[in-house]
Design a protein around this nucleic acid. Structure first.
Lengths: 244, 244
DNA sequence: ATAATAGTGTCTTTAAGACATTATGCG
DNA sequence: CGCATAATGTCTTAAAGACACTATTAT
């Protein structure tokens, strides 16, 4: 009965066990034309061929050393973006979400600036497309439980807008405070006070002037950058927005 | 080339693909003797036999309909507690965390009141034991990457103490405000002002008097209960604690 | 000069921290 | 009574909202 660990491992065969299918799905957000967009692909293969889906795919034990590698690989295949903000949102597993069997997917969300990317359709010739999130229902039915995955990712994003600096990652490296505020207003879907918004970010000591200005047909605005790229600051208080 | 989805599914065999091992690990917290404890088991089987580990096990496609089922099943096997607070923290997957191959684990944390539970050693005769978290290093080496999993779960817990009502789930159904405050002080490891603490919870309208009193050798205290069992309230401001 | 947007001054409001004071039970 | 803990009163402080005011550019 008493075998060594090396004996045990020598006779261990993963294929003797029933095990879930493992995939990673990406909810890639960007802001385009004053609205939040998510990147969707039209499935070109079974199952759920022809339906819209979040880009994703199987965890590939040969290609990927870690789970995050899978996520970055999928993201790069679809967008060409190498190192965006990436966050794991949750894992969804059950026996009904995929007709092939008990399956499990790890959902990630990514924030990228839309001008950074070139949509590519080369991988398995799936067409990727930005979809404004308020149009998402028009694209139903979505494949599998991807509407649920999207909803969880979007809720996470909306929550973090309230108490972190996270959305900075949706802008280009240099941005004005007005651009940042507009972005927050789109995400929160409400108007914010300019002075309060500026105070919040300036007092937090997380951005710095670049010395450059954004030209415009009115008064030029100072350009800022995040002091630490990809960092997210947690504010002690949530944004509340207008009082009644 | 053009097959139907049902044809496709008929010939699909999960065992043709290389796929990760899938497990669930539980970080079960409780408060005992004025300190936070976590439930650990001593592994009785290979691999990592004899090391301490978080209770957990394989996702079992026959037994479990959903991932949460796996978590609840493992929790019940170890503690006999049927419906505690449970939250998914994150999924950790790579090719080095388990000697059997590419493996992935979904980490959950649970909050339970220690008086609710009876530790059972019946399943695979592993002995479960409460370990105060400040002693965790003395129990090293822990199996696999379980110290990392624990750390992520503990960080999540500590963060949520700052801005949610979550720790209520560590107390019994009826509790005094002093007991609640003591609990927060243990979790945050700092003293809190009594008036501010009471205001915070009372103004949030999330607890109500039960009408009963906690007897003691001094002035009896009012007993409260959470208005909604298992609910977590998000405060707009984080607890900061004493100003230096 | 005017329009438009950038940026500031400053008063109010909210919820938290500090800390003294009062209340209530038991021995 | 006197001790210990429960519960409250009230002043201060930090950060947000409201909103008027000033600054800078193009046309």
């Amino acid at each position: 009965m008493s075998t060594s660990e090396s004996d045990y491992l020598q006779h261990y065969n993963i294929h003797n066990y029933d095990t879930p299918l493992c995939t990673v799905d990406m909810c890639i957000f960007s802001v385009l034309n004053d609205s939040v967009n998510v990147l969707l692909v039209k499935r070109s293969e079974h199952p759920e061929r022809g339906k819209w889906a979040l880009p994703g795919g199987f965890v590939h034990p040969e290609k990927d050393q870690t789970l995050d590698d899978t996520a970055y690989r999928k993201l790069f295949e679809k967008t060409g973006v190498a190192s965006p903000y990436l966050e794991q949102v949750g894992t969804f597993g059950n026996n009904s979400r995929d007709p092939r069997g008990w399956s499990l997917t790890i959902a990630y969300f990514a924030l990228i600036n839309s001008s950074d990317i070139t949509l590519s359709a080369n991988e398995s010739s799936e067409r990727a497309q930005w979809v404004p999130i308020h149009e998402l229902n028009d694209y139903c039915p979505m494949a599998f439980d991807h509407l649920t995955l999207f909803t969880h990712c979007y809720e996470r994003l909306k929550n973090k807008v309230q108490y972190t600096s996270l959305p900075i990652n949706l802008l280009q490296e240099e941005f004005t405070l007005s651009e940042l505020q507009q972005l927050f207003e789109i995400l929160l879907n409400k108007h914010l006070d300019r002075k309060a918004f500026r105070r919040r970010f300036l007092d937090a000591d997380i951005i710095e002037e670049t010395g450059n200005m954004r030209a415009s047909h009115t008064r030029p605005a100072k350009l800022y950058r995040a002091k630490q790229l990809g960092a997210e600051h947690y504010f002690l208080r949530s944004i509340e927005g207008p009082r009644s």
